[in-house]
Amino acid sequence: MTSVIGTDSLRDIRNDMMHRVEKSALDFLEQEHARWSALDREAGATIETIAALMRSGGKRIRPEFCLSGFLAAGGDPHDESIIAAAVAVELLHTSALIHDDVFDESAIRRGAPAAHVKYATRHRDNDWRGDADRFGESVAILAGDLALGYADAFLAEAAGARPSVLAAWSEMRTELQIGQHLDVVAAARFTGDPKLSRTIAQLKSGNYTIHRPLLIGAILAGRPDLAAAFETYGLAVGEAFQLRDDLLDMFGDTDTLGKPAQLDLERHKMTLLLSLAIERDPAVRELVERPEAEADGLQRSLLASEMAAEVEKHIAGLVVAGGTALADAELEPGWRAELIALAHSVAYRDK
Protein backbone atom coordinates (compact mmCIF):
# COMPACT_ATOMS: atom_id res chain seq x y z
CA MET A 1 0.00 0.00 0.00
CA THR A 2 1.24 3.50 -0.84
CA SER A 3 1.85 5.64 2.24
CA VAL A 4 3.16 8.80 0.56
CA ILE A 5 0.78 11.77 0.84
CA GLY A 6 2.63 14.66 -0.82
CA THR A 7 1.28 15.45 -4.29
CA ASP A 8 4.77 15.87 -5.73
CA SER A 9 5.79 12.48 -4.36
CA LEU A 10 2.70 10.84 -5.84
CA ARG A 11 3.49 12.36 -9.21
CA ASP A 12 7.12 11.31 -8.97
CA ILE A 13 6.03 7.70 -8.44
CA ARG A 14 3.62 7.86 -11.37
CA ASN A 15 6.14 9.63 -13.61
CA ASP A 16 8.71 6.95 -12.88
CA MET A 17 6.15 4.32 -13.83
CA MET A 18 5.30 6.25 -17.00
CA HIS A 19 8.96 6.14 -18.04
CA ARG A 20 8.84 2.37 -17.61
CA VAL A 21 5.67 2.24 -19.73
CA GLU A 22 7.28 4.16 -22.59
CA LYS A 23 10.49 2.14 -22.43
CA SER A 24 8.58 -1.13 -22.41
CA ALA A 25 6.49 -0.11 -25.42
CA LEU A 26 9.36 1.25 -27.51
CA ASP A 27 11.72 -1.62 -26.66
CA PHE A 28 9.06 -4.10 -27.72
CA LEU A 29 8.38 -2.27 -31.00
CA GLU A 30 12.10 -2.06 -31.74
CA GLN A 31 12.44 -5.81 -31.24
CA GLU A 32 9.40 -6.51 -33.40
CA HIS A 33 10.71 -4.22 -36.13
CA ALA A 34 14.08 -5.98 -36.17
CA ARG A 35 12.43 -9.42 -36.18
CA TRP A 36 10.12 -8.75 -39.11
CA SER A 37 12.52 -6.59 -41.10
CA ALA A 38 14.91 -9.53 -41.13
CA LEU A 39 12.23 -11.43 -43.06
CA ASP A 40 11.73 -8.66 -45.61
CA ARG A 41 12.67 -4.98 -45.48
CA GLU A 42 9.03 -4.00 -46.06
CA ALA A 43 7.69 -6.26 -43.32
CA GLY A 44 8.55 -3.79 -40.59
CA ALA A 45 6.79 -0.80 -42.20
CA THR A 46 3.60 -0.99 -40.16
CA ILE A 47 5.60 -1.49 -36.94
CA GLU A 48 7.67 1.60 -37.72
CA THR A 49 4.43 3.53 -38.23
CA ILE A 50 3.28 2.60 -34.73
CA ALA A 51 6.68 3.33 -33.18
CA ALA A 52 7.02 6.68 -34.95
CA LEU A 53 3.67 7.83 -33.63
CA MET A 54 4.53 6.76 -30.10
CA ARG A 55 7.95 8.44 -30.29
CA SER A 56 6.34 11.68 -31.47
CA GLY A 57 5.02 12.44 -28.01
CA GLY A 58 1.36 12.84 -27.17
CA LYS A 59 -0.35 13.55 -23.86
CA ARG A 60 -0.34 9.94 -22.59
CA ILE A 61 -3.62 10.69 -20.81
CA ARG A 62 -4.96 7.13 -20.90
CA PRO A 63 -1.93 5.36 -19.40
CA GLU A 64 -1.70 8.18 -16.85
CA PHE A 65 -5.24 7.45 -15.68
CA CYS A 66 -4.57 3.71 -15.73
CA LEU A 67 -1.53 4.16 -13.46
CA SER A 68 -3.43 6.61 -11.27
CA GLY A 69 -6.34 4.20 -10.79
CA PHE A 70 -3.88 1.51 -9.77
CA LEU A 71 -1.97 3.69 -7.30
CA ALA A 72 -5.13 5.30 -5.90
CA ALA A 73 -6.39 1.78 -5.20
CA GLY A 74 -3.23 0.87 -3.29
CA GLY A 75 -1.33 -0.99 -6.00
CA ASP A 76 2.38 -1.72 -5.65
CA PRO A 77 4.35 0.64 -7.95
CA HIS A 78 6.83 -2.17 -8.66
CA ASP A 79 4.14 -4.50 -10.03
CA GLU A 80 4.91 -5.16 -13.71
CA SER A 81 1.31 -6.03 -14.56
CA ILE A 82 0.21 -2.40 -14.39
CA ILE A 83 3.06 -1.38 -16.70
CA ALA A 84 1.86 -3.90 -19.29
CA ALA A 85 -1.74 -2.66 -18.90
CA ALA A 86 -0.69 0.96 -19.39
CA VAL A 87 1.24 -0.01 -22.53
CA ALA A 88 -1.89 -1.77 -23.80
CA VAL A 89 -4.02 1.32 -23.21
CA GLU A 90 -1.58 3.56 -25.11
CA LEU A 91 -1.30 1.09 -28.00
CA LEU A 92 -5.10 1.01 -28.24
CA HIS A 93 -5.06 4.79 -28.44
CA THR A 94 -2.34 4.68 -31.11
CA SER A 95 -4.49 2.31 -33.15
CA ALA A 96 -7.45 4.67 -32.85
CA LEU A 97 -5.40 7.71 -33.90
CA ILE A 98 -4.07 6.01 -37.04
CA HIS A 99 -7.58 4.95 -38.02
CA ASP A 100 -9.08 8.34 -37.10
CA ASP A 101 -6.76 10.11 -39.51
CA VAL A 102 -7.96 7.87 -42.33
CA PHE A 103 -11.63 8.41 -41.41
CA ASP A 104 -11.19 12.18 -41.15
CA GLU A 105 -8.79 12.53 -44.11
CA SER A 106 -6.49 14.40 -41.74
CA ALA A 107 -3.08 15.16 -43.24
CA ILE A 108 -1.26 15.96 -40.00
CA ARG A 109 -0.78 14.18 -36.67
CA ARG A 110 1.45 15.64 -33.95
CA GLY A 111 2.99 18.06 -36.39
CA ALA A 112 4.06 15.40 -38.91
CA PRO A 113 2.37 13.74 -41.91
CA ALA A 114 -0.30 11.28 -40.84
CA ALA A 115 0.48 7.62 -41.55
CA HIS A 116 -1.74 7.35 -44.62
CA VAL A 117 -0.24 10.52 -46.09
CA LYS A 118 3.31 9.35 -45.41
CA TYR A 119 2.80 6.09 -47.28
CA ALA A 120 0.84 7.67 -50.12
CA THR A 121 3.81 10.00 -50.64
CA ARG A 122 6.19 7.05 -50.54
CA HIS A 123 4.10 5.30 -53.20
CA ARG A 124 4.30 8.36 -55.47
CA ASP A 125 8.00 8.92 -54.87
CA ASN A 126 8.76 5.33 -55.91
CA ASP A 127 6.41 5.50 -58.91
CA TRP A 128 4.68 2.30 -57.77
CA ARG A 129 1.60 0.93 -59.49
CA GLY A 130 -1.95 1.50 -58.35
CA ASP A 131 -3.59 4.39 -56.54
CA ALA A 132 -1.23 6.11 -54.10
CA ASP A 133 -3.94 7.33 -51.72
CA ARG A 134 -5.53 3.90 -51.57
CA PHE A 135 -2.11 2.40 -50.81
CA GLY A 136 -1.50 4.90 -48.00
CA GLU A 137 -4.88 4.20 -46.44
CA SER A 138 -4.31 0.44 -46.69
CA VAL A 139 -0.96 0.62 -44.88
CA ALA A 140 -2.43 2.90 -42.21
CA ILE A 141 -5.39 0.59 -41.58
CA LEU A 142 -3.03 -2.38 -41.27
CA ALA A 143 -0.78 -0.44 -38.88
CA GLY A 144 -3.78 0.46 -36.74
CA ASP A 145 -4.93 -3.15 -36.68
CA LEU A 146 -1.46 -4.33 -35.72
CA ALA A 147 -1.30 -1.81 -32.87
CA LEU A 148 -4.60 -3.19 -31.63
CA GLY A 149 -3.23 -6.73 -31.77
CA TYR A 150 -0.16 -5.70 -29.79
CA ALA A 151 -2.43 -3.96 -27.27
CA ASP A 152 -4.35 -7.20 -26.74
CA ALA A 153 -1.11 -9.09 -26.17
CA PHE A 154 0.09 -6.63 -23.51
CA LEU A 155 -3.30 -6.67 -21.79
CA ALA A 156 -3.33 -10.46 -21.71
CA GLU A 157 0.09 -10.34 -20.07
CA ALA A 158 -1.22 -7.85 -17.51
CA ALA A 159 -4.40 -9.77 -16.68
CA GLY A 160 -2.62 -12.77 -15.20
CA ALA A 161 -4.75 -14.14 -12.37
CA ARG A 162 -7.35 -11.37 -12.67
CA PRO A 163 -9.59 -12.38 -15.61
CA SER A 164 -12.04 -9.57 -14.75
CA VAL A 165 -9.46 -7.23 -16.30
CA LEU A 166 -10.13 -8.91 -19.65
CA ALA A 167 -13.85 -8.15 -19.34
CA ALA A 168 -13.15 -4.46 -18.68
CA TRP A 169 -10.72 -4.39 -21.60
CA SER A 170 -13.17 -6.07 -23.95
CA GLU A 171 -15.86 -3.58 -23.00
CA MET A 172 -13.43 -0.70 -23.54
CA ARG A 173 -12.53 -1.93 -27.02
CA THR A 174 -16.18 -2.45 -27.95
CA GLU A 175 -17.21 0.98 -26.66
CA LEU A 176 -14.48 2.61 -28.72
CA GLN A 177 -15.48 0.82 -31.93
CA ILE A 178 -19.20 1.53 -31.46
CA GLY A 179 -18.39 5.14 -30.64
CA GLN A 180 -16.29 5.42 -33.80
CA HIS A 181 -19.14 4.02 -35.89
CA LEU A 182 -21.70 6.39 -34.39
CA ASP A 183 -19.28 9.28 -34.96
CA VAL A 184 -19.03 8.42 -38.65
CA VAL A 185 -22.82 8.11 -38.94
CA ALA A 186 -23.41 11.41 -37.10
CA ALA A 187 -21.04 13.17 -39.51
CA ALA A 188 -22.93 11.74 -42.49
CA ARG A 189 -26.32 12.78 -41.10
CA PHE A 190 -25.02 16.16 -39.86
CA THR A 191 -28.12 16.97 -37.85
CA GLY A 192 -28.08 18.27 -34.31
CA ASP A 193 -28.71 15.52 -31.78
CA PRO A 194 -27.21 16.34 -28.36
CA LYS A 195 -28.25 12.97 -26.95
CA LEU A 196 -26.39 11.06 -29.67
CA SER A 197 -23.40 13.40 -29.49
CA ARG A 198 -23.22 12.93 -25.72
CA THR A 199 -23.40 9.15 -26.19
CA ILE A 200 -20.51 9.33 -28.65
CA ALA A 201 -18.56 11.52 -26.21
CA GLN A 202 -19.16 9.01 -23.41
CA LEU A 203 -18.05 6.05 -25.53
CA LYS A 204 -15.03 7.73 -27.12
CA SER A 205 -13.93 9.94 -24.22
CA GLY A 206 -15.63 9.23 -20.90
CA ASN A 207 -15.19 5.48 -21.04
CA TYR A 208 -12.21 4.98 -23.33
CA THR A 209 -10.09 7.87 -22.07
CA ILE A 210 -10.76 7.92 -18.34
CA HIS A 211 -13.28 5.50 -16.86
CA ARG A 212 -11.99 2.19 -18.27
CA PRO A 213 -8.28 2.96 -17.77
CA LEU A 214 -9.01 3.88 -14.14
CA LEU A 215 -11.09 0.73 -13.68
CA ILE A 216 -8.43 -1.53 -15.20
CA GLY A 217 -5.88 -0.03 -12.80
CA ALA A 218 -8.18 -0.54 -9.82
CA ILE A 219 -8.93 -4.16 -10.74
CA LEU A 220 -5.22 -4.93 -11.09
CA ALA A 221 -4.75 -3.46 -7.60
CA GLY A 222 -7.49 -5.76 -6.27
CA ARG A 223 -10.09 -2.99 -5.80
CA PRO A 224 -13.04 -3.62 -8.15
CA ASP A 225 -15.21 -1.94 -5.52
CA LEU A 226 -14.04 1.43 -6.90
CA ALA A 227 -15.86 0.77 -10.20
CA ALA A 228 -18.93 2.94 -9.45
CA ALA A 229 -16.96 5.96 -8.22
CA PHE A 230 -14.52 5.74 -11.13
CA GLU A 231 -17.37 5.44 -13.63
CA THR A 232 -19.15 8.55 -12.35
CA TYR A 233 -15.88 10.47 -12.21
CA GLY A 234 -14.78 9.18 -15.62
CA LEU A 235 -17.99 10.05 -17.45
CA ALA A 236 -18.08 13.58 -16.02
CA VAL A 237 -14.42 14.34 -16.62
CA GLY A 238 -14.52 12.55 -19.98
CA GLU A 239 -17.32 14.82 -21.18
CA ALA A 240 -15.29 17.83 -20.02
CA PHE A 241 -12.30 16.43 -21.94
CA GLN A 242 -14.38 16.05 -25.10
CA LEU A 243 -15.89 19.52 -24.85
CA ARG A 244 -12.40 20.98 -24.46
CA ASP A 245 -11.37 18.98 -27.54
CA ASP A 246 -14.33 20.48 -29.42
CA LEU A 247 -13.43 24.02 -28.34
CA LEU A 248 -9.78 23.56 -29.30
CA ASP A 249 -10.72 22.22 -32.72
CA MET A 250 -13.21 25.04 -33.27
CA PHE A 251 -11.12 27.97 -32.09
CA GLY A 252 -7.53 26.66 -31.93
CA ASP A 253 -4.72 26.76 -34.47
CA THR A 254 -2.95 23.95 -36.30
CA ASP A 255 0.56 24.76 -35.08
CA THR A 256 -0.47 24.56 -31.42
CA LEU A 257 -2.65 21.48 -31.81
CA GLY A 258 -0.23 19.51 -34.01
CA LYS A 259 -3.19 18.51 -36.18
CA PRO A 260 -5.50 20.48 -38.49
CA ALA A 261 -7.68 22.99 -36.62
CA GLN A 262 -11.36 23.32 -37.60
CA LEU A 263 -11.15 19.82 -39.09
CA ASP A 264 -14.34 18.72 -37.30
CA LEU A 265 -16.27 21.50 -39.04
CA GLU A 266 -14.69 20.84 -42.42
CA ARG A 267 -15.52 17.13 -42.16
CA HIS A 268 -19.01 17.84 -40.86
CA LYS A 269 -18.35 16.11 -37.54
CA MET A 270 -21.38 16.47 -35.30
CA THR A 271 -19.48 17.26 -32.10
CA LEU A 272 -21.14 17.68 -28.74
CA LEU A 273 -20.34 21.39 -28.87
CA LEU A 274 -22.02 21.82 -32.26
CA SER A 275 -25.03 19.73 -31.24
CA LEU A 276 -25.60 21.88 -28.16
CA ALA A 277 -25.25 25.03 -30.26
CA ILE A 278 -27.79 23.76 -32.81
CA GLU A 279 -30.23 22.97 -30.02
CA ARG A 280 -29.90 26.40 -28.40
CA ASP A 281 -29.29 28.81 -31.29
CA PRO A 282 -31.58 29.00 -34.36
CA ALA A 283 -28.88 30.87 -36.34
CA VAL A 284 -26.45 27.97 -35.94
CA ARG A 285 -29.17 25.48 -36.83
CA GLU A 286 -30.00 27.43 -39.99
CA LEU A 287 -26.36 27.36 -41.09
CA VAL A 288 -26.03 23.63 -40.46
CA GLU A 289 -29.20 22.84 -42.38
CA ARG A 290 -27.91 24.50 -45.54
CA PRO A 291 -26.85 22.01 -48.27
CA GLU A 292 -23.26 23.31 -48.11
CA ALA A 293 -22.53 24.32 -44.53
CA GLU A 294 -19.32 26.38 -44.52
CA ALA A 295 -16.81 25.96 -41.71
CA ASP A 296 -15.95 29.67 -41.56
CA GLY A 297 -19.58 30.69 -41.30
CA LEU A 298 -20.27 28.15 -38.58
CA GLN A 299 -17.23 29.28 -36.61
CA ARG A 300 -18.32 32.94 -36.78
CA SER A 301 -21.85 32.01 -35.79
CA LEU A 302 -20.63 30.01 -32.81
CA LEU A 303 -18.48 32.91 -31.66
CA ALA A 304 -21.43 35.28 -31.97
CA SER A 305 -23.70 32.89 -30.07
CA GLU A 306 -21.47 32.98 -26.97
CA MET A 307 -21.75 29.20 -26.96
CA ALA A 308 -18.11 28.90 -25.97
CA ALA A 309 -18.77 30.75 -22.72
CA GLU A 310 -21.71 28.46 -21.94
CA VAL A 311 -19.59 25.40 -22.61
CA GLU A 312 -16.85 26.72 -20.33
CA LYS A 313 -19.40 26.94 -17.51
CA HIS A 314 -20.55 23.40 -18.26
CA ILE A 315 -16.97 22.14 -18.21
CA ALA A 316 -16.43 23.73 -14.80
CA GLY A 317 -19.54 21.97 -13.49
CA LEU A 318 -18.37 18.62 -14.88
CA VAL A 319 -14.99 18.98 -13.16
CA VAL A 320 -16.75 19.67 -9.86
CA ALA A 321 -19.03 16.65 -10.43
CA GLY A 322 -15.97 14.48 -11.03
CA GLY A 323 -14.46 15.51 -7.71
CA THR A 324 -17.75 14.96 -5.91
CA ALA A 325 -17.92 11.41 -7.27
CA LEU A 326 -14.73 10.60 -5.34
CA ALA A 327 -15.88 12.11 -2.03
CA ASP A 328 -16.75 8.80 -0.40
CA ALA A 329 -14.35 6.56 -2.32
CA GLU A 330 -11.74 4.78 -0.19
CA LEU A 331 -8.60 5.93 -1.97
CA GLU A 332 -4.99 5.96 -0.87
CA PRO A 333 -3.87 9.16 0.91
CA GLY A 334 -3.50 12.10 -1.43
CA TRP A 335 -5.11 10.46 -4.43
CA ARG A 336 -8.50 12.17 -4.32
CA ALA A 337 -6.73 15.53 -4.62
CA GLU A 338 -4.48 14.19 -7.37
CA LEU A 339 -7.40 12.83 -9.40
CA ILE A 340 -9.14 16.20 -9.07
CA ALA A 341 -5.93 17.85 -10.30
CA LEU A 342 -5.90 15.43 -13.26
CA ALA A 343 -9.50 16.38 -14.02
CA HIS A 344 -8.44 20.03 -14.19
CA SER A 345 -5.46 19.22 -16.39
CA VAL A 346 -7.53 17.42 -19.05
CA ALA A 347 -10.45 19.85 -18.90
CA TYR A 348 -8.34 23.00 -19.19
CA ARG A 349 -5.52 21.88 -21.49
CA ASP A 350 -4.45 24.06 -24.43
CA LYS A 351 -3.81 21.32 -26.99
Score class of each variant (00 low, 15 high):
Phe65Tyr: 12
Ile200Trp: 01
His181Met: 13
Ala261Phe: 07
Gly206Ile: 10
Leu92Ser: 06
Gln262Asn: 08
Glu312Met: 14
Glu157Leu: 15
Ile108Leu: 14
Glu48Leu: 14
Leu248Ile: 10
Asp246Ile: 04
Leu263Ile: 15
Glu105Thr: 03
Asp133Val: 12
Leu326Ala: 03
Phe251Ile: 13
Gly322Phe: 01
Leu214Arg: 04
Tyr348His: 08
Val320Phe: 00
Ala277Trp: 02
Ala228Glu: 15
Leu276Thr: 06
His78Gln: 10
Leu203Lys: 07
Leu243Val: 14
Leu71Lys: 07
Glu338Leu: 15
Ala52Ile: 01
Asn126His: 10
Gly192Gln: 09
His116Val: 09
His123Thr: 05
Ser164Ile: 06
Gly57Thr: 12
Asp328Lys: 09
Asn126Pro: 00
Leu196Cys: 03
Glu30Val: 02
Val284Trp: 01
Arg349Ile: 07
Phe135Leu: 11
Arg173Tyr: 09
Ala72Met: 08
Glu306Cys: 12
Ile108Thr: 13
Asn126Cys: 14
Gly149Cys: 13
Phe154Asp: 00
Leu298Tyr: 00
Met172Tyr: 05
Lys313Tyr: 04
Arg129Cys: 03
Ile47Tyr: 04
Asp255His: 11
Ala261Met: 07
Met54Cys: 06
Gly217Arg: 02
Asp16Ile: 04
Glu30His: 07
Ala341Asp: 12
Asp127Ser: 12
Asn126Trp: 12
Ile141Val: 13
Leu67Trp: 00
Phe135Pro: 04
Ala43Gly: 15
Asp281Asn: 15
Asp350Phe: 09
Ala114Val: 09
Ala168Met: 07
Val311Glu: 00
Ala153Ser: 15
Val4Gly: 03
Gly206Pro: 11
His99Phe: 09
Ser81Tyr: 03
Ile216Lys: 05
Ala347His: 07
Ala218His: 04
Arg124Asn: 11
Ile141Ala: 07
Arg35Cys: 08
Ala186Tyr: 03
Asn207Lys: 14
Leu303Gln: 13
Leu10Pro: 00
Asp350Ile: 14
Leu303Ile: 15
Ile98Gln: 04
His344Arg: 14
Ala143Leu: 08
Leu53Ser: 06
Val165His: 01
Leu265Glu: 04
Asp328Met: 08
Arg223Ala: 12
Ala147Asn: 02
Asp246Lys: 06
Pro224Phe: 15
Ala167Phe: 07
Asp249Glu: 08
Glu105Pro: 02
Asp27Ile: 03
Thr232Ser: 11
Lys118Ile: 01
Leu92Pro: 00
Gly6Thr: 04
Leu214Ala: 14
Met18Gly: 02
Leu303Arg: 15
Ser56Thr: 05
Gly222Ile: 11
Met270Arg: 10
Ile178Gln: 08
Leu176Glu: 01
Gln31Val: 11
Arg198Met: 09
Thr191Ser: 10
Pro282Met: 08
Ser345Phe: 07
Arg20Phe: 01
Ser138Leu: 05
Gly160Asn: 13
Ile13Tyr: 02
